[in-house]
């Protein structure tokens, strides 16, 4: 019970941090609030039995903070505080409540089968288990010899997925290089030198 309570509190903390990040006037405080939300997420990972995720989440959070602060700090924010666009806000809130209602009825917590399983009772161990997680957990040690089941899934059972994700990372980083490249830009060559 206590761990679930901690997780709930941390999610509320994440929501508050996200609201500050979206609505605060100063861009620097917005970026720092995003960092707070990410660190809370890593603590949730740790509490929910996923130390594999807590590691990279903390590190990725630090790097993201450095990148975003570097982007925001030396550049002046000249954007005006425009009046709220009521139509967009209404559309978002409407779509969101439709989402919420759908989740509420699709969740197995209402006693229905299918949909998201109730919190704390994954599909894995239940009677209607048709998934592969139990098989992975039972056979990972003898099949692959890896004690860490997550790594066994990631790099042996589902290595195809990992290859795809490595490709996505490669292409995203390549896109970053191409956007920042100045070699082929004769006209922009004596543009603002990045600080």
């Amino acid at each position: 019970m206590t761990i679930e309570f901690f997780i709930l509190m941390l999610i509320i903390f994440m929501i508050i941090a996200a609201l500050i990040a979206v609505e605060s006037i100063d861009l620097l405080s917005a970026v720092i609030a995003v960092g707070a939300a990410g660190f809370a997420l890593s603590v949730i990972d740790l509490l929910a039995g996923a130390p594999d995720l807590a590691f990279p989440q903390v590190l990725v959070e630090v790097i993201t903070l450095v990148l975003l602060i570097r982007m925001v700090m030396t550049r002046r924010d000249t954007s005006r505080q425009t009046s709220r666009d009521t139509l967009r806000t209404a559309v978002v809130l409407l779509a969101g409540s439709v989402f919420l209602v759908a989740v509420f009825f699709a969740a197995g917590g209402m006693g229905m089968s299918g949909g998201i399983p109730p919190f704390g009772q994954p599909v894995m161990g239940s009677a209607a288990d048709t998934g592969v997680s139990t098989q992975y957990l039972t056979r990972c040690a003898e099949d692959t010899g890896a004690a860490n089941t997550v790594m066994g899934i990631l790099l042996d059972y589902r290595a195809y997925d990992t290859l795809g994700e490595a490709t996505v990372i490669f292409v995203a980083i390549l896109g970053g290089y191409v956007v920042l490249r100045r070699v082929g830009r004769k006209k922009d060559a004596k543009e603002v030198e990045p600080s």
Partner: peptide, 27 residues
Amino acid sequence: SGGAIAISDLAIAMSVAAGLIGIFLAL
């Protein structure tokens, strides 16, 4: 143990580390 998992780990670590260092230098 784990067969080729350790080799794949090394390859992925090299790709991720070098790529992110490169884009960090550029940015």
